[in-house]
Design a protein around this nucleic acid. Structure first.
Lengths: 123, 123
DNA sequence: ATAAACCCTGACATTAATGTTAGGGTCAAG
DNA sequence: CTTGACCCTAACATTAATGTCAGGGTTTAT
């Protein structure tokens, strides 16, 4: 199938499909006229790429194990677990940062509301 | 004081001080030779800017209420609370997204470990 | 044979605060 | 009067995936 069809089937933009190819995630063959030709399997491949992107992995990280997970179960791909561990650590760090900002914000909001409340009763 | 001294006193880079000015957060006067001249008060002002940046607010948002909070308590600045509420909502949305990715990652990691465990006992 | 709907490459835009560099003034101490 | 430490503006770089546009081929259906 050609790129437009693959885009329609997967919901991924043509632009992104070309980008994935540039990042080494897809390798369609080229017809004589220069058009990309994708196998039926490319559809699943694109969905797999999306799955990992949605986990917050970069195309570079995905490129490191995509070939393996497309032919094996994840558990057999040595590269996956370390990347998951690293990503998990990043996510937890981000959550901690956000939680601390959240607490800070909530305290400041409460202070404002308290002061305004006092203000009203003093007037 | 000149920009280098303000940078040294606050720990904020000269580049950032110029950027804050461009964003309307600082307005030093200009000497005849073109140098920026900051009042002693600018030091507190910069620390206040940093405080809000650390809460995740943009320079544009800060510009919307900085003038007020520099001369009043936060509670008297009407613009602050809506921005805090909006920021809080964003933060909570981000935390939720990260939590869901985190759960997803943890499940996938557990699956991998389970499958590898089974694998060992089957061999 | 022409128009519509494809496809191609290449390149710039997006975001936001900050770093860095280039090219050039100013000033104080020696 | 020169050196070093300041200061200035302007501009490009950073990040990552995606959008968009320009300029140009190809294919398909009429």
């Amino acid at each position: 199938m050609r790129i437009g069809e693959l885009a329609a089937r997967t919901g991924v933009s043509v632009r992104s499909l070309r980008y994935y190819e540039q990042q080494g995630l897809l390798t369609p063959i080229r017809c004589e006229n220069g058009y990309r030709e994708y196998s039926a399997f490319a559809e699943e491949q694109v969905r797999t790429i999306q799955l990992y992107l949605n986990l917050g992995l970069s195309t570079e990280q995905i490129a490191g194990f995509l070939h393996c997970v497309l032919i094996n179960k994840e558990a057999f791909c040595q590269e996956v677990l370390p990347i998951y561990r690293q990503k998990l650590a990043e996510i937890e760090a981000q959550i901690n940062t956000l939680q601390s900002i959240k607490s800070n914000l909530q305290e400041r909001m409460q202070s404002i509301l308290d002061e305004r409340g006092n203000q009203e009763s003093e007037e």
